[in-house]
Amino acid sequence: MSTLEIRYVWEWPVRLTHWFNVISIIVLSVTGYYIGDPFVSVPSTSSYVMGWMRYLHFIFAYVFALSWIARLIWMFFGNRHARFLAFAPWASRDGWKNIIGTFCFYTFLRRKVPYAVGHNPLAAMAYSCVFILFLIQIVSGFALYGQFAPGGLWDGIFGSLLVTFGNQGLRLTHHLIMWLLIGFAIHHVYSAWLMDIKEKNGTLSSIFGGYKFIDPDEEN
């Protein structure tokens, strides 16, 4: 084992959008679930529970959408771990080797996890899907939101989706994707923890500080 190198892997825009996403997804899921199924009923008409839930949902919808756009822009300017290619491991031969290797590690067919400085290839593929799910969620959400003002801005941009997929179809999609994202979050936290133990390079702390401790010998 040679000397560990300290590498700046996750630049600040990556970390910032990551944590904005975390907060947004938590707030949007809780308020969104309440909007779909108001599990608290209040005795007084002067309360404003649903009103606040919807208000928060709309505020964080904007936060989430802006975070998504910021991350998309960073795909062009970030380091090699933040760019488009990092999320398409299937595009290269090495990528394929690592996909298979990581798959074998997860299915207990291989003892040692293939070493990755940035995203491991399976995670990168999951993030590609999640990035698209985020987009569907943002688009369907703003299309539904736009219904309060027919002819307004959001109705003008996404109103045609209400014609194509129907009002209720969009609503159902919006609900189901929330659950997919909750499922993803469970997997994501677990896998990050697992890799923190197995890769031994500071995976968990890297999303807070951005640094990883890389063994140059292990890098392929």
């Binding site: 679930y33 779909g36 199924d37 997860y106 207990f108 159902l172 609900h175 189901l176 929330m178 659950w179 997919l180 909750i182 499922g183 469970i186 997997h187 677990y190 896998s191 923890w193 697992l194």
Partner: peptide, 22 residues
């Protein structure tokens, strides 16, 4: 939709929990 989603989330948690133990 919510029952199916909750089932999905629970199944994910159980699957990764088992994976963690292993």
């Amino acid at each position: 939709a919510d029952k199916i989603g909750l089932g999905l989330a629970a199944a994910t948690a159980v699957a990764f929990g088992a994976h963690g133990v292993a």
